[in-house]
Every structure is written in C-alpha cells, then in structure tokens.
C-alpha cells in the first residue's frame, strides 16, 4: 500500500507545483489577454484572405491533385494553424523564459520555495499549452467561417496543434536555459523557425521539394504537426497518423527531459 502511495503523492505534488507556476502566468494574462485574443482571430483572417483567397485564386485548379484534391485556401488554412502554434510557442519559450531566468529572476524567487525545477518546466509547458488551446480554438473558428473544416473531426486539430507547439517549446526552453543573452534568439527565428514555416508543408506539399530537403523537413516536428492538423481539418487523416503522433510525443518527451536538465544546471549551482 505504502509503496503505491509514495509515487502517487509525488505525481500529485508535481501537478500541484506546476499548477502554481501556471496560475502565476494566468494571473499576469488576466491583464493582457485582450491583445492576444484579438491577435488569435486576426492572424488567420489576414493569412486566409491574403494568401488563401488572394494568392490562391492565381493557383490553377490543376494543382489540386498535388494539394490532395482541395483548393489552395483549404490546403493553406490548417497549415497556417499548425505554423502559428509553432511561432507563438517558440516565442513564448525564448524571451519570457530568459527573462525569468536572468533578467527578472522569477525562477530564483520560486526556487526559494518548496517548488522545484521540474515544476517550473511543467508549469511553463502547461501555460504554453493553454495559449495553444485558446489560439487554435480561435483559429478553428475562423476556418469554420471560411467554410474549411469538413467534419467534426476538425476538432482534433486543436490537440494536434497544441502538441505541435509544445514540441517546439520544450527544445527552445532547453536552448534558452543555455543562453546568457538574447542574441541567439534572433538567429533561432531566422535560421530555424522561419525556414520551417516556409518549408514544412504549410504553403505547399513537401513532396514538391528535392528529396534531400524533403527528408530534412520530415525530421522536424512542424512537418508532422501540419500532417495531423491538416488531416483533422480536411477529414483526410493519413493512415500514417500514428507515426506522426508518436514522433511528436517522443520529440516532446525527450526534449522536455533535456530542458529540465539544462534548466537545473543553470538555476541550481
């Protein structure tokens, strides 16, 4: 009995501790949510209008076999949803985390209490998951206004998009934990996040790329996230969906363990 009780108590304390860190971020968000919610609706609206309708009207319908039998607006919408989650999650994992490590030293203050490094990490990931949840819900609403989702299966795009965001958040938090100033973040966005945005199947199918680049794209979480989100929204879930899902879960798990180690190395000396 006791042997079972101990790990249970540990699990519940990990959740309770992480919940405090999440609660803190929500307390701050109470003052700033309007701007971010507005952005959550505006971003899809702008992309879908400019690129989906504007650019999409120039793309010959002959392309639709490559696009999986849909017009460009339908192809693009779910791709942008996954990509937006990647971008927001990436941003949330850079400057705000660095600020809490070294500029404002929130983590130092929190670690003087009974909370520990893994509470910080799980709490921040929960916070980012919450942001992904609200963002992708708003996004899906806008997609629905454009008439893009084909079935209630589209709701699965929300957890898929959240998972995509988290698969970027964990490694980028790990990266932030090793940084002593913010100069690496500009490079991260320029050389990693933005190229992925362009080449991971958001704007065109990865199969259009040379094989070598196609393999690189397939190794990144965004490719798998786009595949799941698009499959859900368009009700064309590929038979390979368990592989995409497993890839994202393993990627998240491994990078979260690394992030915890690096945060600990940085914060506990």
């Amino acid at each position: 009995m006791a042997a079972i009780a101990v790990p249970n108590r540990r699990t519940s304390s990990a959740i309770a501790g992480a919940a405090r860190v999440l609660q803190r971020n929500l307390l701050v968000y109470r003052r700033t949510w309007r701007g971010s919610v507005f952005g959550s609706f505006l971003t899809p609206l702008l992309y879908l209008t400019a690129m989906g309708i504007g650019l999409g009207s120039l793309i010959a319908s002959g392309g639709s076999t490559v696009l999986g039998g849909v017009d460009y607006l339908h192809f693009l919408g779910p791709g942008i949803l996954a990509s937006s989650c990647m971008q927001t999650a990436s941003f949330e994992s850079t400057y705000p985390i660095m600020g809490k490590i070294s500029w404002r030293r929130n983590y130092e203050a929190i670690l003087a209490t009974p909370l520990q490094v893994h509470h910080l990490l799980i709490g921040e990931l929960s916070w980012i998951a919450f942001r992904m949840l609200s963002m992708s819900s708003a996004f899906l609403f806008v997609l629905t206004v454009f008439g893009i989702p084909r079935s209630p299966l589209a709701l699965l795009a929300i957890p898929a998009a959240m998972l995509t965001g988290l698969a970027f958040a964990a490694p980028i938090i790990a990266f932030a934990a090793t940084r002593h100033n913010d100069s690496g973040f500009a490079a991260l966005f320029r050389f990693v996040v933005n190229p992925l945005f362009l080449f991971s199947g958001t704007f065109f199918p990865v199969s259009q790329l040379p094989d070598a680049i196609e393999w690189v794209a397939a190794a990144t979480p965004l490719y798998h996230g786009v595949a799941l989100v698009r499959g859900a929204v368009l009700d064309t879930m590929p038979a390979t969906w368990p592989l995409h899902l497993a890839y994202l879960l393993v990627f998240l798990g491994v990078t979260a363990v690394i992030a915890e180690r690096l945060l600990r190395r940085r914060l506990v000396k």
Partner: peptide, 27 residues
C-alpha cells in the same frame, strides 16, 4: 524565509499579488 541580495520580486504582479502568489508557491 529568504531575502536575496538583489530583489527578485515579480515585476508583472502588483504588490499584494506578489505576496498572494508567493503564498501559493508554499501551498
């Protein structure tokens, strides 16, 4: 209770919220 050399108050919270949130960290 720990008072560090350099203040590390939560700049995104109010004075009262700093105390209440810290209390929550202690459960």
């Amino acid at each position: 209770g720990v008072v560090p050399q350099t203040d590390n108050l939560d700049a995104e919270l109010t004075v009262l919220e700093n105390l209440l949130m810290y209390a929550r960290y202690f459960d």
